[in-house]
């Protein structure tokens, strides 16, 4: 019955397409050592700049071709997904926790709590985010945890702003007043009456934020500020691909497609989930 209703709303294809790509990419990343056709770090000058499989002069097993050091592009993309997903999940969840809790408190309690939290958000948002991230990583030093912290520190405000506005709307609803009359405490009302109604937005934002984290990680890798190991990252591959665009366009194009598909899927998946979670739309 639920499924029929979703299909009627047109949520179906969006949810399945976006979710399908994310699941595929995630499984490939988790199972990378098993599914990657080659060692992503293995260089072979004999195999340098092999084109993708449908062009002339390919080698079997190198589906998307190789880069200028003869490394297998598909395997590098699969392994690069590991860092992309780790950063996406860790950074988005951290930003979500901090931002949602503060947003809920500001929106529901109002008054002083709201004034202080909103002020901090305003000041925070005055910094251009990408510069902020580069600055933070420069201070924290490169590495996986720095990237995660930087993204969370910058982007909690996105959650805070949206959840605050929603919680504020909720706090004016009659059922919240009814709960007051019945004798519920403020925290109890916030968790039982307000929180369930903002969960759909939290879910949508969380998924969107994962996409954003993937982009930010790619940008940081691109400018060589992310993970300073040899592990392939999507941003790093794009940076290398840019240098050999005329000799081997595929080294730039495939990671870009992967990145865009992933980011779009995260945002679409979030929107579709929100519609799915929302009891009134459902």
């Amino acid at each position: 019955m639920d499924d029929a209703r979703i299909a009627r709303r047109g949520v179906g294809p969006r949810l399945w397409l976006a979710g399908g790509w994310l699941l595929l990419a995630l499984l490939a990343a988790i199972l990378a050592p098993l599914v990657a056709p080659q060692d992503p770090l293995a260089q072979d000058l004999m195999l340098e700049r092999l084109p993708p499989f449908w062009l002339d002069g390919t080698e079997p097993g190198y589906w998307l071709g190789t880069d200028s050091l003869g490394r297998d592009l598909l395997s590098r993309l699969i392994f690069g997904g590991r860092i992309a997903f780790i950063v996406a999940f860790a950074a988005a969840i951290a930003a979500c926790l901090v931002g949602s809790v503060l947003g809920l408190i500001a929106g529901y309690f109002g008054g002083w709590a709201d004034r202080i939290i909103s002020r901090i958000v305003d000041i925070w948002m005055a910094f251009p985010p990408v510069l902020f991230a580069i600055l933070l990583v420069a201070v924290l030093g490169t590495g996986l945890s720095s990237v995660i912290i930087a993204i969370a520190v910058i982007d909690w405000t996105r959650f805070c702003r949206v959840i605050r506005a929603e919680a504020m709307g909720q706090s004016r609803m009659d059922y919240v007043e009814n709960a007051r009359i019945a004798g519920y405490g403020r925290i109890g009302i916030m968790l039982r009456e307000v929180l369930p109604n903002v969960v759909p937005s939290i879910v949508a934002l969380l998924s969107l934020e994962m996409g954003i984290a993937v982009i930010v990680e790619a940008i940081l890798s691109f400018v060589n500020l992310s993970i300073s190991t040899d592990d392939p990252t999507w941003g790093g591959i794009i940076a290398e691909g840019r240098l050999s665009i005329h000799q081997a366009w595929w080294v730039l194009v495939f990671p870009l497609i992967t990145l865009i598909l992933t980011v779009l899927s995260f945002s679409q998946f979030g929107e579709a989930l929100k519609a799915r979670f929302d009891p009134v739309l459902r």
């Binding site: 059922y175 009456e193 369930p196 969960v199």
Partner: peptide, 15 residues
């Protein structure tokens, strides 16, 4: 107890 004016907004939509 209260019997409210608007029975739509007096019930929590997500519960």
């Amino acid at each position: 107890a209260l019997i409210p004016q608007d029975p739509l907004t007096a019930l929590n939509p997500s519960r």
